[in-house]
Design a protein around this nucleic acid. Structure first.
Lengths: 235, 235
DNA sequence: GTTTTCAGTTTTACATTCAACTTTTGGAGT
DNA sequence: ACTCCAAAAGTTGAATGTAAAACTGAAAAC
């Protein structure tokens, strides 16, 4: 009876759950840019499902803040404003700081060493100015610290916020100067983690995110100026 | 054309949205105790709606963590374990601390004065050992500080967590000693707020929540011992 | 030339239906 | 009397249907 426990987990997640993941990916990856309408019919055909599970998925994503539902007018990928970022970043900062503290308590030496190795590889890409892999490793590091908190509620919550702002990332090209700063901050992060100095790590992570926010924010400002009011909801 | 801007906002929230609110209330207020199955049919009849919008609402509540969906076996009010509380409380602590810091920056003198008056009334109820109104004012104070943060994302996120643990409150009768401690902590909270000392306020709030957690946790432990494994999901 | 109006079409919100899975119930065998 | 199996009843997951709201665009009015 327990024989099939070996088989791949037959967790057959329900259709709507799968759709939540798929559509979320579309949005945070920027395939559905902020503000554009999401006609259900189109997505239904794209995924080959009926409207019911898709609509359920959209409701969930709306509660996460990724899509905006307007009564009788359907769904659209949520717009992201500077005000949103101003709100979200401090919250992410608090959460990541907490993650850092907990990670200092809970991570094994082996795990910390593995973060260090991610870090070293990341710095190597920084030196060679390879942005893409740099970003990837960067994200991996933050994910590893998060996982090290051993706190699933924290992780889920952080990911939700991160998803909402990640879309802004596509606008944000780092200046060379900012990049150097970020790399330096990461050096501090690793040091604090290796020293298991939770307070210190929390502090750096918060600062790191704050700086990142300022970069993204400035970029967004410049865009907003040049585009001259991309007008939201005209009424 | 703008004439109807004066009329009450015709926001006619959709059916499913309304249901989310209603069912959420049922759960956090303890009308649907943790672990019990939620047959959709019953709720449908209760609210006089068809299954479609109700199921949408359940999906949303599941993503908030209030209900647990088991494939082909429907929904149930999520169980709440000590481990869950251990996870959630630090996160709430971090968020409330941030709220405190922001509130110190953003609240008007008038608002702070109004919190003070809530506080005074609460202390009066404490002196007279009136638990119910004490609790109510207590919650009002925390809500006011939260609102003072002027950060909607923070508020939404905090409320979501608070909803998940609020159900545990029904087990937690405070000891006289703990009550005195809580009242004292609130005295500190008000002082820090009036001094607009953000760091101090953050610190106290975090401590306050930590103490609260220990009380609730202990209570839960005792219950768990007496009930001897209320067994969750047998397989 | 611009704005308004109104029929036709599309899209959405919700209800209903259908199929698949679970649980229950009844009975046969040990 | 207990266990095991099978058929029925009930519930859930997903598809389809329906009524109403919103968009479109072309003709009429200003």
């Amino acid at each position: 009876m327990a024989s099939n426990a070996l088989k791949q987990p037959i967790v057959r997640q329900s259709l709507h759950e799968e759709l939540v993941g798929l559509v979320r990916e579309l949005i945070v990856d920027g395939d559905l840019p902020p503000g554009v309408k999401i006609p259900e019919k189109e997505l239904c055909e794209r995924f080959g499902v009926s409207r019911t599970p898709l609509r359920e998925a959209l409701k969930v994503l709306a509660s996460e803040g990724l899509v905006t539902l307007t009564p009788n007018r359907g769904a659209s990928a949520s717009l992201i404003t500077i005000e949103d970022l101003e709100e979200v970043f401090p919250v992410m900062g608090a959460l990541e700081a907490l993650a850092g503290e907990l990670a200092c308590q809970h991570m094994t030496a082996r795990e910390i060493a593995s973060v260090r190795s991610l870090h070293n590889r990341m710095i190597e890409h920084y030196r060679q100015e390879q942005l893409k892999p740099y970003f990837q490793l960067n994200q991996n590091i933050h994910e590893a610290i998060l996982a090290g908190s051993r706190n699933n509620s924290l992780i889920v919550m952080y990911r939700s916020l991160a998803g909402r702002v990640r879309r802004a990332r596509y606008f944000a090209n780092m200046s060379r100067k900012r990049w150097a700063q970020a790399a330096a901050e990461h050096e501090e992060i690793i040091s604090a983690l290796e020293a298991r100095d939770g307070a210190q790590l929390a502090d750096i992570l918060k600062r790191h995110l704050q700086n990142k926010f300022e970069t993204v924010s400035q970029q967004l400002m410049e865009m907003a100026e040049s585009v001259q009011k991309p007008n939201r909801a005209s009424r």
